[in-house]
Design a protein around this nucleic acid. Structure first.
Length: 484
RNA sequence: GGCUCCUUGGUCAAGUGGUCAAGACACCGCCCUCUCACGGCGGUUACAGGAGUUCGAAUCUCCUAGGAGUCACCA
């Protein structure tokens, strides 16, 4: 049988990392097994509709390369792929369940239910619906419906026994019938709940492997009862442990935690995000950690899935992102970094050289601004920067050296790194000091920055002769003024 | 609270009765070096606790503790 997996989010207008990982695993499993991967939108909660919320899902999946074979916007033979367009299907199947005795009509009012709940709370018991409407006769049900009474359809859970199944990651899960409730399958507004819809859709769409969050682990036996009532084959279940923000809390929008889009905005590469989350809860077996999407699809397997929750560690993502940035071709890097450079650099400059200098020193693209701003404009700086104990430099002993360096640099025709380096070494030699005594102050004088991407001569080359000399003059004057 | 799960360093994790308990991130030190980063080398840090079973337990059993999920006309 052909493997078919699905990603079935409810469109909230936000794609959080845990959801993305679920989609990724479902995609990887389908690809690895030559199967189909499809997208289904679960929007049966009419009270929580978010306008156009499907868009961020479509966009994210497309952006990350998690292409789906079937879905709301691409069609397919098992549609519609949006639950709100399948309303009559659920009603029909709910009635079939009633005929089979696996479900029943319920006319209990909210008031009665609330009273029951209060009573249970007062007695310190767990509330459970009392099957009050289970034994209504067919005639009475028909009459009350005809009279316009509101009703729901509830699942009829057996009173005794237990239900169990094999989860691909958690093993055998067994839940006593007595712990399950006669949940509502069809709401009074005619829309199905997840309890019904997920079963109907997964069956009708011929989903073979249900990959979803662990929140469904313990309610799955209830869904299985439905599969059994219909006489349908149960799918293979693969429940996933949660992605946490810290030991206690799950990653969530409510906590203001990073979503996929937030991470992109923070300068993370989509490839790095995918690679990192693939390893959050799954391991490929070897020691290798860097994988492209296609490589992941080749090595993915259910055995590597872990049972315990994993904390989202931005530090490691950041490291991995740096690895990805460094592995980019210069052209590719420049293209992705362009928006950041455009914002940080306003004066003409050899962008390719600048990019080459910056690329290996970046962990996220958004660090570009802070790393290159001094190229654009000489910052105000403190003379303390001239003091460096290893270089044995101070503001005082840099003045003379800078004068010599400025004179020597003014003589250089071709302002290339090699020429400049040679020139400054000559200055050091002539003054009978170590190279650091001149290279450090020169770098400070032309950048006003303690840490720079590249050494004095690399930066001077990029700045160009005119700008370099202008900055040297500025700094020499500053030294004279402030030391006086 | 009931039920269903989970528990190896700060984090991700390998490990399925016999290992000096891998590796990665982070951290620290050294080297490389015109600062920084990259890279190289080295280091600190872990089997939640307690009972068993066994010649032998991170691996099996039980208990305790901690944590998560769930108990909706949300998914």
């Amino acid at each position: 049988m052909k493997v078919r997996t699905r990603f079935a989010p409810s469109p909230t207008g936000y794609m959080h990392i845990g959801n993305l990982r679920t989609a990724l695993y479902a995609w990887l499993f389908a690809r690895k097994n030559g199967g189909d991967f499809l997208l289904r939108l679960e929007d049966t909660d009419r009270n929580r509709l978010v306008e156009e919320a499907g868009n961020v899902i479509y966009r994210t999946l497309e952006d990350t390369g998690l292409t789906y074979d079937e879905g709301p916007d691409v069609g397919g033979d098992y549609g519609p792929y949006v639950q709100s367009e399948r309303k009559e299907i659920y009603g029909k199947y709910a009635e079939m369940l009633v005929e089979k005795g696996a479900a029943y009509y319920c006319f209990c009012t909210k008031e009665r239910l609330d009273a029951l709940r209060e009573q249970a709370a007062a007695e310190g018991k767990v509330f459970k619906y009392d099957k009050h409407c289970l034994h209504l006769s067919k005639e009475e049900v028909a009459a009350r419906i005809a009279a316009g009474e509101e009703y729901v359809i509830r699942q009829n859970i057996p009173l005794e026994g237990e239900s169990s199944y094999e989860d691909a990651v958690y093993g055998t899960i067994t839940v006593p019938m007595s712990d399950m409730e006669d949940n509502i399958l069809l709401k009074s507004d005619g829309w199905p709940t997840y309890n019904l819809a997920n079963v109907i859709d997964d069956h009708l769409m011929e989903i073979t492997h249900v990959i979803r969050g662990i929140e469904y682990l313990s309610s799955t036996p209830k869904y299985n009862l439905l599969y059994d009532a219909f006489g349908w084959d149960r799918p293979t279940y693969i429940h996933l442990p949660p992605v946490m923000k810290d030991k206690q809390k799950k990653l969530s929008k409510r906590n203001g935690d990073a979503s996929y889009e937030d991470l992109i905005k923070k300068g993370y590469l989509k490839e790095a995000i995918i690679n990192y989350i693939a390893l959050l809860g799954w391991n490929p077996g070897g020691e290798r950690e860097l994988f492209s999407l296609e490589e992941l699809a080749q090595v993915f397997s259910l055995e590597g899935l872990s049972k315990s929750s994993a904390i989202f560690d931005t530090e490691k993502l950041t490291w991995m992102n740096g690895e990805y940035i460094r592995s980019l071709s210069l052209a590719d890097f420049m293209e992705r970094a362009k928006p950041y450079f455009d914002e940080a650099i306003t004066r003409p400059m050899d962008m390719e050289r600048l990019a080459a200098l910056i690329q290996p020193r970046l962990e996220t693209l958004s660090q570009i601004g802070e790393k290159v701003s001094f190229f654009n404009e000489m910052p105000a700086y403190d003379l303390a920067l001239y003091t460096h104990k290893k270089m044995k430099t101070t503001a005082e002993n840099s003045v003379e050296i800078l004068h010599s360096a400025r004179e020597a640099l003014a003589q250089v025709e071709e302002f290339t790194n090699a020429n400049l380096y040679e020139t400054l070494l000559a200055v050091a030699e002539k003054a009978e000091v170590k190279s650091g005594r001149v290279l450090w102050p020169v770098r400070i004088a032309i950048t006003g920055t303690a840490v720079t991407p590249g050494g004095a001569t690399e930066i001077a080359e990029l700045l160009g002769k005119e700008e370099t000399l202008a900055r040297l003059d500025y700094s020499i004057e500053k030294l004279h003024k402030e030391l006086a």
